[in-house]
Amino acid sequence: MGKSSKDKRDLYYRRAKEEGWRARSAFKLLQLNEQFDLFSGVTRVVDLCAAPGSWSQVLSKEIFTKDHSPDARIVAVDLQPMSPIDHVTTLQADITHPKTLERIMEIFGGKKADFVCSDGAPDVTGLHDLDEYIQAQLILSALQLATCVLKEGGSFVAKIFRGRDIDLLYSQLGYLFDKVICAKPRASRSSSLESFIVCIGYRPRAGWKPELRPDLSTEEFFQDMGIGRARLHSDLAVDDEERKVAPFIACGDLNSIDSDATYSRGEVGRSLDPVQMPTAPPYKRALERKRGEQPSE
C-alpha cells in the first residue's frame, strides 16, 4: 500500500503524523486511558518493548502535566535503539535480564512502579499457533518484570492477540490482579486479532518472591507462582490448564474515527511523511544483492 492510500484507509495513521506521534498506536493507549483512567495518581512508569516510542510519548504527555510529582519517572526499555523523548529515560536492554531490573530500580530511587505497559509484538511467521506462543512468551517476559517492579495495587497493560489459548492467559492473570479486562480501542482495527489486556490492582502472590536470574527461563520463573500454569511431570502427564474468559470492553467513543473505515479524499488531505522512518530490516543485504548493489558490511 502506498503512503496516500494508507492515509485514506486509516485516518489514525494520518492523524498520528499530524499530531507528531511516532505511531498510530498512540491513540490506542489514549483511548484505553479514556476508558480506564489509567494515569491518575501515577508517578513511576515502565514502558516495555517501547520502540519506536509512541506509548512513551503518550506517557510523557499525560504524566508530566503542569503539577506533576517531583518523583515522576518514565523508563522505556527496548532491544532496539530509540530516539529521545522528553521526560523519558530510554534503556536499550533485554527486559528478561536482571541488570535491566536493577537499572530501572536505580532510576526509580528504589521505589516501585505504579504502571507497567507493553505494546510489543514479535515478527509473525504466519504459523498461527507458533506466533501465539511467541506472543504469549513476550507478555510473560513483560509480566515477569512487572511482578518485580510493580507496587501492590499497580496496573499492567499489554498487547494481546485473541487466538486459541488466550483464555489460559486470562485465567493466569486473574491470580495476580483484582480486575482483568480485555479491551479493544477503536483505534485498533476490528479486522485484526489485536486487543489489550488491562490488569488493575496488582496482588503479589502470598509467600512468593519474584527473582530474576539469568539461569531461569520465563517458564521457570512462573513455575512456583501457583497461577495454574502447566508443569513438567515425571510421567509427562498433560495438565488440564484453567481457562477463563475476561470481560470485553470496547473503548473509545463510537463516534470517533473508525479504523476499519475508508475516508474520502476531502477528509484526508495532503499526505505527510511519517514521523519516524522504519529501521533497517535483517534482510537488507538480501535486497541489496537482488538489486545488484554491493552489500553493505
Binding site: 506462543y133 511467541i134 512468551q137 539469568p214 539461569d215 531461569l216 527461563s217 520465563t218 517458564e219 521457570e220 513438567l232 511431570h233 515425571s234 510421567d235 509427562l236
Partner: peptide
C-alpha cells in the same frame, strides 16, 4: 528440545522423565 533451550530426556518404554538439562543459556 524446548523453546527455552532446555532438553528433557525421557525413557521411551515407560514414557517417564529421566532428567532436564541446559547449557546455561535459556534464551528463547
Amino acid at each position: 528440545l524446548t523453546a527455552h533451550n532446555v532438553v528433557i530426556t525421557v525413557d521411551v518404554s515407560g514414557m517417564t522423565l529421566i532428567d532436564t538439562r541446559n547449557c546455561g543459556w535459556k534464551s528463547i
